[in-house]
Design a protein around this nucleic acid. Structure first.
Lengths: 331, 331
DNA sequence: CGCTTAACTGTAATCGTTTACAGTTGCGAT
DNA sequence: ATCGCAACTGTAAACGATTACAGTTAAGCG
């Protein structure tokens, strides 16, 4: 309610002095005391929007991703948060719950005054988002695959390499009939994981069978459960790679309910190496895509860019790591 | 970069007309076309901070909680998000990663211009937060227990009743030596769950033994694992209630690694009924504290308050529900 | 072709800050 | 006491939008 002018009047000084006291610029002890007293008396708090307008900074960084239910993004957020907590910037999260329009609108609003920088990790490969990213007139870091022709700071993980590791590991542990429970093809990871899987299978000298890829329609445990329930003949497979740990967990639940032994009959590899991997029974072998580390790096990139607006854009690649647990033990 | 004045000049109209076109107020087709053309040419986006300053609204609601790693809060966020998505307000999240100071500062900044309303679910019972809440000059909804003397909109769940249900269920299924793996006593849920447990045990006609409460120092699976590992003599117990599903998951992991049968030797009840409950092996009986529903209600309360600033504050109570699964089957 | 009225447009004030600039004050040195 | 200089303070102009109000244009109608 009270504004800086009211405080100035109450303290018997000018608005400039009030502002200076608040922002820690030089002020006589006497002046400062009166201003602080007036602030306390009026319960004054500066208006952030006005400040942001004037100084052209909000001291906020916005992290945006699509799927709050996905633990990989939560880990990413942890990474960003840790890195930012030692800076002057606050982290705000914006997670779109429905349409691409919504997310585009959200980002634009953020971009024009509510945030100084944006870290965005879009799962859906909609070209409107791509356009938006290149149109955004503010520091942006993209986590995930950089679309062609977009020149922004970027951190991504070589998930193909991760899938190759998983395939290799399965083959080394004696599996020959490997399937993929994939995420939706409307998402970037869905598209990329399928391609990577096909490539890895061929690279290992097997022939790729389209029927070995089963599409789930979300990245959830329910979808994994449903995917497994649709398989008529489990004897065609002795291993599955699942596009994330959630899908793997759902699949394993179906297996345990239906007398399919893991890893006895079927080996399972998850992706993301989230907390759940070591809690499942059996514990889940999973490809760690280093979400938390990617978050950290993204935050570093944005801070660096904020401090140094004209530098060339950087693209950073993180290496995945296969974490071996019980679900892929030898038969 | 471009501001409204530049657009006005480019289009050969006044800034007022530009503003009206943007905000959908009446404009001649001719005028509108020229303005839109100018906007496109200059790649103009209105500055949110300036708009927020002038109209005294940001069209943002801020949801704040402490622990992003806790799936219960994620569920809560889902509830808030769903409810808000049909309103004109956007949801932003602010999750504190370290000190109370940080969260206080964050909320204040939000409060003065960056958000029109605040939904806050503090886990730590620091009185500075309480003070802050009552001092905040904006619509606030508190999810969780309302401190004495604070008169704000509130939604809370009767977790004592939930714990009583769990105790009752355990007794009915033949358990007599019930323990509690509690969360840290520095958190509100930690304090309250312990008290509720003691009360429920006594209400059931058992005598309460202090040694039956084991304190974990976080709400994580690791803490649950560690808590179980510290128990010397499992024969003293035939059931445990865990202060959340995460703790339960960790405890079950220890059990499975150490030949303790669940539910054979020990029955386990979790709290929160998160996704993981049905993915664990055995599946976990859990007290559903309706986090998602509480989020929805909180969002409704804040929208209602925003539409109706002078109404008396409302306190809403949600009833918990026990979801019975395998981990508490009869011996 | 005037007149009335509705529809649109422009001017300028305003929101609550910050900050350049000029003006004032206080203090030590002479 | 006076001067010089540093340290502080106040005035007023921004920042980029919205909007009341008054002024203009267009349209409808006899």
């Amino acid at each position: 309610m009270a504004n800086i002018e009211a405080v100035a009047k109450q303290a018997g000084v000018s608005v400039a002095s009030v502002s200076r006291v608040i922002n820690g610029t030089a002020a006589r002890a006497d002046t400062e005391a009166r201003v602080r007293k007036a602030i306390a008396e009026l319960d004054y708090q500066p208006n952030s929007a006005a400040r942001a307008l004037k100084v052209r900074q909000s001291e906020q960084i916005c992290l945006s991703f699509d799927d709050l239910a996905n633990p990989a993004y939560i880990a990413m957020t942890r990474g960003v948060g840790r890195e930012l907590s030692s800076s002057k910037y606050r982290l705000i999260l914006s997670s779109a719950f429905s349409s691409v329009e919504e997310i585009v609108k959200h980002l634009q609003t953020m971009g024009r005054g509510f945030a100084d920088g944006l870290i965005i990790s879009p799962i859906y490969s909609d070209e409107r988002i791509t356009k938006l990213i290149s149109a955004l007139q503010m520091p942006v870091v993209l986590i995930g695959n950089l679309p062609d022709g977009v020149d922004v700071d970027n951190v991504h993980v070589d998930s193909s390499a991760g899938i190759a590791m998983a395939v290799e590991h399965l083959i080394q542990t004696g599996r020959t009939k490997i399937g993929l429970i994939n995420g939706p093809l409307t998402t970037k990871p869905g598209v990329r994981r399928k391609a990577a899987f096909e490539k890895a299978i061929k690279a290992a000298g097997f022939k790729f069978d389209k029927a070995s890829v089963i599409q789930a329609n979300t990245f959830s445990p329910e979808a994994g459960y449903f995917a497994f329930s649709e398989i008529n003949d489990f004897s065609k497979f002795d291993a599955f790679i699942c596009a994330n740990d959630q899908l793997a967990a759902g699949a394993m639940k179906f297996a345990s309910e239906n007398g399919i032994s893991i890893p006895g009959d079927i080996a399972i590899v998850g992706i993301d190496n989230t907390d759940i991997a070591s809690l499942l029974h059996p514990t889940l072998t999973s490809v760690d895509l280093k979400a938390e580390e990617r978050g950290e790096i993204a935050a570093q990139l944005i801070l660096d860019r904020l401090a140094n607006p004209d530098r060339a854009s950087k693209q950073i690649t993180v290496e995945p790591k296969l974490v071996i647990r019980e679900s892929t033990a030898k038969k």
